[in-house]
Nucleic acid binder design. Structure first.
Length: 863
RNA sequence: GCCCGGGUGGUGGAAUGGCAGACACGGAGGUCUCAAAAACCUUUGUCGCGAGACGUGUGGGUUCAAAUCCCACCCCGGGCACCA
């Protein structure tokens, strides 16, 4: 008998698989396509346990699906543009590309060493020109579609990374940079945007279609998109007596039903009107103070003073369009310039913030929507004019109720999206004073970065023509590699790169030197894999529509908003792109959603912290592979926890998996009748000589049953991603085998032995591919049937997974008091009689009130 | 504040409303050995010598039966948050 030598067999089979192309997707295959994808790695160093987990899960799915008869596409690549490469280059006095490609080589070697079944013919590396040029192509396509804009607005600036960030890249309460954790600043800058907001509604609506996504992720995206329904209401500027001017200000509100309760009006301090209205008046100084305090405050300071609302009166008024009263205009720091119109109708009785502000500055708080349980309702039931000024409440009432003091609307149901709201909206619409409206929290995606190691934005600044997109023929814009970042050089210092002629007027012009956010690269890589070597398009539409959506996408929850939202946007935009542009008759893509099923794998932590290169708490898999081999490590990390749960890394238990694989190895030999020995030739096969052929029959039945049961359970578990319990089930089968091989050889059923050995091997194949292959091809001598990974998943017969005799628990009043063994198909009357007999002494002749029989499980006798 | 997860032995974790703790790790004891390792066997939720009692964050409820369903609450993790 050969000893289990993981290093020898793992290296041997990796070479053979590679030579035979067993992991490549077969384009012409008739089998149904299945696309399984793990989020591609960032080459920040060598792989760590988080990667091992992510890619082990994906590998099990891909191998399992292959055994289920699918033509599987399982590709890999690298998300290799980005700031860490630049920082590392500066630190190591090297270059970003050297660092990046060395890391890719290291990671590739590690992934190969782990035996993942990737289609290595389709590798996508985002910093390769033959990939990123298509990112530029898509940029131009988006430009054609009106999805690209360059504009000036307040942006997030990371002082450490020296670049702007998208809203999605600013995290936490304190507003820190997603990459370096530095607190970001606000700056007013001209930047490039993708108009993701034009897809806001669709991005939200289509979440409902994503049945295979975790609820949590959909919730997070819905939160982020933040849709509010309500109305725009037009207010007219007036003097303090209510004499109208011809100037209007529009506000957005989710509560048009409370419009009668609007007793003052608010502008964001940065609002241009705020300054203008108070200019040259006695109020100017106070308004300015509020404005300056907001401008200076960083997000941290804003956090600290969060609930403390400050404001100032502007000296001017607007007319409340329904009550015709003049209400004062204030500025306040709690009104955000970025949301809605930067102006708010304040209804202090119906909004807690307005309530606090009104209390602080002594402004009126008339009730307009009153709870049905509030005594105030009876008092005001028929009150149509605004009479009572301050509500007797301690806080605003934001729930639903009935409208009071609201003219003709008095008595209607009030609340969010209520009857009263619709009535007020209709009334306003008829008079041109407002309309139903929707607002989103989602902002456009700021995609330009003032960094070198990224995809150049294909545009030119021309003195005569303005900002000009490059024509498609001028692509690619190659990122120059002869730049010395260690000397502080940036793209703007690279003369040959910057000096170009304007594509329109042919005059000398300057090339755009910002690069695109790395997230633009990762927003469509899954499309490139299906047609990775296409030289004329980013991908072929027919091929993409055949393979996509990705059947199973696997990655970390940290991308719930960032990457997963951007990718959905790209897919939708690309779907709409072909219909407009120069790609010909066919739409580029039919598909609207890229990922059909999503598994968000939990993070691998060390001492409660996520493992990552930047935190320096990475556990490399090398030592463990060196000691136990890749199979042991793979099975271990899958066995530790269900895939979607976070996991605290610990090496305790790794040894147990090593023992498990060794035991499986020896058991297969034993099942084949070989004498099992250890490395020092001590005989390990121990047969129990006292066993009879009757024992052999019973154990044979047990083993046969477990073969069928475990094949079924492992299948169900893998399909539900309960990979830990799938492994536990295989361990149970092995335990059953161990019991059987206690039988002396002459008592064993040879056919059963072979069936058990093959089942064990096939079930192990997705998780521990190398040992399974060696057992299959060499030990079981099945080489002529081909690789274990080309076999069909073993069949099972559920009827044979049932025991003929089953043990039932007998409960009296819900407590287990006895056990009986009955035939699996015993009828209920028999079971009742036997159960009662078993607990007769306890029942003490009392007549049972009720007997519940749960098939195959228990009997409960209620007395 | 709003919205999601989660809370089960010493540990990781199992349980379509039906015997809580599968499968492992760790511990204890044993076999083999001059000895050790490996392997194998027994045992291992808590309390109790025992019969037995108690046990899934807390308190109630529904049910013949609750880790699982309902109500209230506590704790941990995550997302959003002065979004009108």
């Amino acid at each position: 008998m050969q000893q289990y030598d993981p290093h020898f067999i793992e290296e041997k089979w990796q070479k053979i698989w590679d030579k035979n192309d067993i992991d490549l997707m077969q384009p012409d295959n008739e089998k149904p396509p299945y696309y399984v994808l793990e989020m591609f790695p960032y080459p920040s160093g060598d792989v760590h346990m988080g990667h091992v987990r992510n890619y082990s899960i994906g590998d099990v799915i891909s191998r399992y699906k292959r055994m289920q008869g699918f033509n599987v596409l399982h590709p890999i690549g690298w998300d290799s543009f980005g700031l860490p490469a630049e920082n590392a280059a500066i630190k190591q006095n090297s270059s970003p590309q050297k660092w990046t490609y060395e890391n890719i080589d290291k990671q590739r070697a590690s992934l190969r060493r782990l035996g993942f079944s990737y289609d290595w013919s389709r590798v996508v590396i985002t910093s390769d020109a033959d990939y990123y040029q298509w990112g530029q192509w898509i940029f131009l396509k988006f430009w054609e579609m009106g999805l690209v804009e360059r504009r000036s607005s307040p942006v997030n600036w990371c002082p450490d990374c020296n670049t702007v960030l998208a809203n999605e890249q600013v995290l936490g309460n304190d507003g820190h940079c997603w990459r370096c954790k530095t607190i970001v600043e606000k700056r007013e800058l001209e930047q490039w945007y993708f108009n993701i907001t034009s897809y806001a509604d669709e991005l939200l609506e289509d979440l409902d279609e994503l049945k295979g996504w975790p609820e949590r992720v959909k919730q997070m995206q819905a939160n982020w998109i933040g849709k509010s329904t309500g109305a725009n209401v037009v207010f007219t500027l007036c003097d303090e007596n209510g004499n109208a001017t011809d100037e209007t200000i529009t506000v957005f509100t989710t509560r048009p039903d409370t419009l009668f309760g609007c007793s003052f009006f608010l502008l964001a301090p940065e609002h241009p009107l705020a300054l203008r209205l108070s200019k040259g008046t006695e109020y100017e100084a106070a308004v300015n103070t509020v404005r300056l305090s907001v401008e200076k405050a960083s997000s941290v300071e804003r956090e600290m003073t969060e609930r403390d609302k400050n404001g100032a009166f502007t000296g001017r008024y607007v007319i409340n369009p329904v009550s015709n009263q003049a209400v004062p205009i204030w500025v306040s720091d709690y009104v955000l310039m970025e949301y809605g119109t930067g102006a708010v109708m304040a209804v202090p009785s119906g909004d807690q913030r307005d309530f606090e502000f009104a209390k602080k500055y002594g402004l009126p708080i008339p009730p307009v929507v009153v709870s049905k349980d509030d005594p105030l309702l009876a008092e005001l039931a028929n009150q149509t004019d605004t009479r009572l000024l301050d509500v007797p409440w301690d806080e605003a009432y934001t729930g639903s109720g009935f409208m009071v003091q609201s003219g003709e609307f008095t008595g209607l149901a009030g609340g969010k999206d209520s009857e009263g709201s619709s009535a007020v909206i209709n009334w306003l619409s008829e008079r041109g004073l407002g309309s139903a409206s929707v607002n989103f929290r989602l902002r456009d995606w700021l995609i330009s970065r003032q960094r070198y190691w990224g995809n150049p934005i294909p545009a030119v600044h021309c003195k005569h023509c303005g900002i000009v997109p490059l024509p498609y023929e001028d692509l690619p814009v190659i990122l120059p590699l002869d730049l010395d970042v260690t000397a502080g050089e940036s793209l703007a210092d690279h003369k040959e790169f910057c000096e170009v002629n304007c594509p329109l007027c042919r005059q000398p012009a300057r090339r755009e030197t910002d690069t695109m956010d790395t997230f633009t690269c990762s927003s469509w890589y899954y499309l490139r894999y299906v047609d990775a070597h296409n030289k004329s398009l980013p991908f072929d539409g027919d091929t993409a529509d055949k393979w996509l959506p990705v059947d199973q996408y696997i990655g970390g929850i940290e991308h719930a908003i960032l990457h997963l939202l951007y990718s959905r946007f790209f897919t939708k935009a690309l779907r709409d792109a072909g219909l407009l542009g120069s790609t010909g008759a066919r739409s580029l893509l039919q598909l609207g959603e890229p990922f059909k099923n999503l598994l968000t794998q939990g993070m691998v932590k060390l001492d409660g912290e996520t493992m990552s290169k930047s935190k320096g708490n990475v556990v490399p898999p090398e030592d463990m592979i060196a000691r136990y081999g890749a199979d042991t490590l793979r099975v271990y990390i899958l066995f530790m926890a269900p895939p979607d749960k976070d996991l605290e890394w610990s090496q305790e238990g790794l040894e147990g998996i090593w023992r498990f694989l060794n035991r499986a190895w020896r058991s297969v030999y034993d099942l084949l009748g070989e004498c099992v020995v250890d490395s020092e030739n001590n005989v390990l096969s121990i047969y129990d000589q006292d066993l009879t052929s009757a024992d052999a029959d019973l154990r044979g039945q047990d083993l046969n049953r477990d073969i069928h049961r475990v094949i079924g359970k492992a299948k169900d578990d893998i399909e539900r991603f309960n990979l830990n319990t799938a492994i536990a089930a295989i361990m149970e089968l092995l335990n059953s085998v161990s019991a059987y091989i206690k039988l002396p050889r002459e008592l064993r059923n040879e056919e059963l032995c072979r069936r058990a050995a093959e089942a064990l091997t096939l079930l192990l194949a997705p998780m521990a591919p190398h040992i399974a292959e060696e057992l299959w091809c060499v030990v079981l001598q099945n080489e002529r049937k081909g690789s274990v990974h080309a076999q069909a998943w073993p069949a099972h017969d559920p009827s044979q997974a049932q025991a003929t005799m089953v043990e039932l628990a007998v409960q009296v009043n819900g407590k287990v008091r006895a056990r009986i063994t009955v035939a699996q198909d015993a009828n209920e009357a028999e079971v009742r009689t036997e159960a009662q007999a078993a607990v007769a002494t306890l029942l003490d002749n009392a007549e049972p009130r009720k007997i519940i029989v749960v098939g195959g499980k228990l009997v409960n006798i209620v007395v």
